[in-house]
């Protein structure tokens, strides 16, 4: 049997992330509930929620412009474009993968978050605006960490292509135990914990207005638009997990050919790895107390510490 055509695999990457994301979120929610001694929702609950919300009517506040309704659609399009650029299923770059590098992916993610913030400020709802302004402020604090992580990648591979780093990590144990790699992976994990609203101050499903950042922004959206925003944040979570797993922490179990079984196996492996990471994160989330809002700088300082030492050890040799 011959292999799949490359565009089909590339579409498969988008489908895997798009359909796998609610599954991963549901599994994490279940594990989290069990850790807290509750029975918790079904693993497939996010799919039912999305289905229900897509069937409802949608309302827009008076005076809100066209961007209010366009933002969820463009945001999810941005989130679904990132899997075209990063290694999701294959170890080799697919045709469209060189359209953008790590920075390109980062731009897409932050453009989506910018649009959602603009839509939130357009509503006139103080809580939505509060969430949007907090998200942008704290985003600026975690930005230097990401920059240092990208510098590390650039110094290790002399490129900023995600496929190149995955390839380097797979090339042998010497690339895995080097401190620069471990530190950058740790820093990225901390940023992902923040970005997926786990630690340090938010609860990702929280309904307490004062502790909300990400979850406050879609307050005024309803119906299919709310569904798109929720689905988008699940996709963002799986995209970030994929970046951590398939580029930094565990770039194994991906297809090196085009055989359909290998590609399907890679999709299964990605979901499996994400579930393991999700369980780990749910454990971390429950092991630490939430911080006060302005303590977030301490968390960001710790992540920055890891990232800056990654760069320092690289430039001193032995990194």
């Amino acid at each position: 049997m011959t292999g799949l055509p490359l565009p089909a695999i590339q579409a498969g990457q988008v489908l895997t992330v798009g359909l796998g994301a609610p599954l991963v979120s549901g599994a994490i929610a279940t594990v989290e509930a069990r850790l807290q001694g509750r029975r918790g929702p079904r693993v497939l609950q996010p799919f039912y929620d999305l289905h229900k919300m897509f069937g409802k009517e949608s309302l827009a506040p008076t005076g809100s412009g066209v961007l209010f309704l366009a933002a969820p659609v463009i945001a999810i399009a941005c989130y679904l474009s990132v899997p075209l650029l990063i290694p999701v299923l294959t170890t080799y770059p697919l045709p469209l993968a060189t359209m953008g590098d790590i920075l390109g992916g980062g731009f897409l993610l932050s453009f989506a978050s910018f649009l959602v913030a603009v839509a939130a400020t357009e509503t006139g709802d103080p809580y939505a605006q509060l969430g949007a302004s907090r998200a942008k402020t704290f985003g600026a604090i975690t930005e230097p960490v990401l920059l240092m992580v990208f510098f590390t990648v650039a110094a290790i591979t002399a490129t900023d292509l995600p496929y190149a780093l995955g390839e380097t990590v797979r090339s042998g144990p010497a690339q895995v135990v080097r401190p620069a790699h471990l530190l950058a992976t740790g820093a990225l994990l901390m940023v992902i914990l923040y970005e997926t609203a786990r630690i340090p101050i938010e609860t990702h499903t929280g309904t307490n207005e004062l502790g909300m950042i990400e979850t406050a922004r879609p307050f005024e959206h309803s119906g299919p638009y709310l569904a798109l925003l929720h689905w988008g944040s699940m996709i963002k979570q799986l995209v970030l997990f994929t970046i951590l797993l398939n580029i930094f922490a565990a770039p194994w179990g991906m297809a090196s050919g085009t055989h359909p079984l290998a590609v399907a196996g890679a999709a299964g492996a990605l979901i499996g790895k994400s579930l393991v990471l999700g369980v780990l994160i749910a454990g971390l989330d429950n092991a630490f107390a939430k911080l006060r809002l302005f303590k977030i700088t301490e968390f960001a300082a710790a992540a920055f510490l890891l990232a800056i030492f990654a760069v320092c050890t690289l430039f001193l040799g032995g990194g």
Binding site: A155, I156, T157, A158, G172, P173, A174, Q175, V177, R178, P179, A180, L182, L183, L305, L306, F309, T313, L314, F315, G317, G318, G319
Partner: peptide, 22 residues
């Protein structure tokens, strides 16, 4: 322009030293 990876022993030793600093 690639910073060469140290050997496995050196990488492990530097990582342990880094843990001391952390």
């Amino acid at each position: 322009g690639v910073v060469m990876a140290p050997s496995v022993f050196e990488g492990t030793a530097s990582t342990v030293a880094m843990i001391v600093l952390l």
